[in-house]
Amino acid sequence: MEYFVQQLINGLTLGAIYGLIAIGYTMVYGIIGMINFAHGEIFMIGAFTSLLTFLVLGAAGISWVPLALFLALAITMLLTPIYGWTLERVAYRPLRGSPRLAALITAIGMSIFLQNYVQLLQGARNKPMQPIIRGGFELMREGDFVVLLSYLQIFIILLTVGLMIVFTLIIHRTALGRAQRACEQDRGMAALVGINVDRTISLTFVMGAALASVAGFIFLINYGVIDFFIGFLAGIKAFTAAVLGGIGSLPGAMLGGFLIGLIEAFWSGYFTVEYKDVAAFGILVLVLIFRPTGLLGKPDIEKV
């Protein structure tokens, strides 16, 4: 039981990261129907931006933890989306209306480019960072085994849930959200009724990148070490999460993220760490075989 609770907490933390990245995938997929393969790199850039901010703050002597966290988060969410915006502007927008595979290839190309760009500018070595938030509650104890809920994990889960709420409100309550949902349904029609489609798509990338950058921030403070390659696996897992939840569905992305996180945590906890990726993908395959559009995806009746 104690072990179970510990894995549950770990899984939720990991799931928060996947869920936040998955939202970006699912939104972009919903609006322009492409897999933004470079999205994982945006997450990685977010993690690097956070790291650099913490270092700058450290050098500037700002050591009050809440302020440091707030500033790092704000700066990351401000700067990383510029990459998301540029990505769409440079690599995807000129290809709208081209064969879908073309955009997929530029996405993979951008992913390789961004990885190497960061490697070149920041070095290939691991970047370790001191933990920022320490301590936590002791939830329960059995013999030597202590279930710990750290302040860090509380912070992460609160942050994620808060962001997801804000984000859902944006999608459902604002003009931008309406424009976005309109573009998802029919871009041509949306343009006809006066929605600026280009701007809406750009903003989608910006929002997706902002959430991914928060995921990067969380990754950094949770695991304390990053490198230029973290975007790849996290990106793939997050995309898996988006598909698992039903691509195009926002609640699906969050659900899928948490599910993948939990599957990994429990698999590692109870079976083998080595095969946790196999478990995640295996469950994806199973879900898709029985529910081809994912857990919360709309069942698509074939239009003939």
Partner: peptide, 18 residues
């Protein structure tokens, strides 16, 4: 090398999407 590789993939696709 890999930077150019990724960049080339993007540029060629932009130049000739098909």
């Amino acid at each position: 090398r890999m930077l150019a590789f990724g960049g080339a993939m993007v540029l060629i696709m932009l130049w000739r999407p098909a």
